[in-house]
Structure formats: C-alpha cells, structure tokens
Amino acid sequence: MDPLDMESTPLTASIDRRRAMQWMFAAVAASTALGQAPAGATISQHTPVPKGYGTDPDLTKLYKPGDLWPLSLSETQRTSAALICDIIFPADEVSPSASSLHIHDFIDEWISAPYAPQMADRQPVLDCIAWFESEAESRFKAPLSKLTDDQRNAICDDVAFGAKSKAFQIPARNFGRFKFLAAGGFYTTPEGMKDIGYVGNTPTINFDGPTPEALKHVGLA
C-alpha cells in the first residue's frame, strides 16, 4: 500500500484540504489588509494569519502548545497520535506514558507551526497516523484504539527498526519523523528528564565534579 495515495489515507486528505483552506483564507485576509481584496472573495475577519513568534518574543514566559498558533489535528487524529505516542513511550516503573504528558499535543504544535521545517514534517506525521490506523483496520479489523498492546506492537515492529521490506520504506521513514518528535517532546518534560537521569538546571554553590561512583564507572577512580 502506498500511503501517499490519497484514496488510502482519507483522514490525511480531508484534514489537509481543510487546513489548506484555512491557510488560503488567511493569505487572502492578509492581502485584503493591504487593500488588495480579490474580487468576489468573502473574508472571515476572525481567521488568524499564521505567523511565528517573531524575532523578539518574551523569553521568560512559559508557553504551551496552542498558545502561539492554532493546533490542527482533528479529534480522531489526536486520539490516534496519542496511541502511537504510547506505543513508543508506554508507562513503566520509571516514567508515565507519553500521552499522559500530552506529547501528542506537542506534536500537534510542531506540525501546525508556520515555519518551513515544521511544515515539512506535517505530511509525514499525518501519513504516519493514517498508516497505523489503516494497518489496524486491515490486519485486525478494528481501529488502533481497540487493539491490544501486542497487536499495536506488531504493527510498530514493521517500521520501528528500519523498513522490513521496500513496501515499508515510506511508512518507516514517516514513523522515524513521528518518533523524533515524540522523543524530543517526551525527554524535554520534567518526567522525561528524570527518566533519562538528567538532574541539572539546579543551582549549586560549587561545581563538585564527578562523583566517586562515576569516576569508578569509567576506570578513573
């Protein structure tokens, strides 16, 4: 199955058309503001012009997904994204699941952002979501949400270690982008930082250097 085929990924196709319309209206709104209204166009005054945070944002403010530009995953896509996040990052004895940390919202923030590199990740991520759902349907006749962990993992096995065969090349690549975002999102949270053993960002009077245990570990003690 070719995931770039629009017929096989209705989820992707519909959302992208909707988003494309949103952006087109925004562009038209922008041009109208400059006094160049295209003939016959009806413009919604409430459509935000997608733009970044600019070159002088408030650096001390705490931001969350959706603060700066609208998120754009549909509810269905969002649910699927959360499930894929949890396939990659299930809860274990060290840290909670990715979805409980809203990593899917971060992915939504990323692919909804008005910057070229993030925009380039949009389609691969949407295709990844659509691929998991269509694989769930074709292999187990159920949506991803109804599958057991083993069933979900069976799908993931085909793309998480490189492409198993040529047919999996593009899904594997798309999964790679999804995982890049999920991992960056996860390990930057307080829970993810703790999981990985990062204990910095704490003021200390002196820099004490390595612990005796750490030195011993590398044979320097």
Binding site: F180, A183, G184, F186, Y187, T188, G192, M193, I196, G197, Y198, V199, G200, N201
Partner: peptide, 9 residues
C-alpha cells in the same frame, strides 16, 4: 548529561 532538547532519543 546536559538538558535534553529536540533530538534526544
């Protein structure tokens, strides 16, 4: 063991 950013993992 620096603060993780995008690319971690």
């Amino acid at each position: 063991r620096n603060m993780p950013g995008m690319g971690a993992g």
